[in-house]
Measured scan of single mutants.
Amino acid sequence: TTYYDVLGVKPNATQEELKKAYRKLALKYHPDKNPNEGEKFKQISQAYEVLSDAKKRELYDKGGE
């Protein structure tokens, strides 16, 4: 599973699309609303952290993490 899959976006997604997808999923899986989905929330946050940063995203796209 790639970070793009976690957020449900395509690899060519814009920053705005990433932000929108992250917010939607973060609300859905937030531990306050969904106590059993803490791990999913962490995955979503990690994916967004990497993909929202241009340098980290470039490194990730080249095969790094």
Rank of each mutant, 00 (worst) to 15 (best):
K62R: 12
D32P: 14
I44M: 04
D53M: 03
R57M: 03
Q43G: 06
R57S: 03
H30L: 06
Y29C: 04
Q46S: 07
N34A: 12
S45G: 06
P31R: 05
E58S: 07
S52D: 02
A21Y: 02
T1I: 14
K24Q: 12
K20P: 01
L18E: 00
L27C: 12
G64P: 11
G64T: 14
N36Q: 13
F41R: 04
V9P: 00
G64S: 12
K10D: 09
K62E: 07
P35E: 08
D32E: 11
E58L: 08
A54H: 11
K42V: 08
G64E: 14
V6S: 03
N34Y: 09
K20I: 14
Q46W: 10
D32G: 09
R23E: 15
P31G: 10
L51W: 00
V6D: 05
L51T: 01
H30S: 11
D61A: 02
G8K: 05
K28W: 06
E58P: 04
K20G: 07
T14D: 05
L25T: 02
K56Y: 06
G38P: 11
K10S: 13
A47N: 00
T2K: 05
K10W: 07
V6C: 06
E16A: 11
E58N: 09
D53H: 05
G63L: 14
R57H: 02
A13S: 07
V9A: 03
E58F: 10
P31E: 07
K42R: 15
N36W: 10
K40M: 12
G63H: 15
L27I: 12
G64N: 13
L51R: 00
D53T: 04
Y4V: 01
A13F: 06
K40H: 11
L59H: 07
E65K: 11
S45A: 12
P31A: 09
F41P: 01
I44C: 02
V9Y: 00
T1Q: 14
L25Y: 03
R23C: 15
S52R: 08
V9T: 04
G8V: 02
N36H: 12
E49Q: 08
Q15I: 11
D53W: 02
V6Q: 05
I44R: 00
S45P: 00
T2S: 13
K33A: 12
D53C: 06
Q15V: 13
K24A: 11
T14I: 03
L7N: 00
P11W: 10
N12P: 02
S45E: 15
R23P: 00
P31W: 05
E16W: 09
L27D: 15
Q43N: 06
R23I: 15
K10E: 11
E39Y: 08
A47Q: 00
K33L: 15
P35C: 07
Y4A: 01
V50G: 02
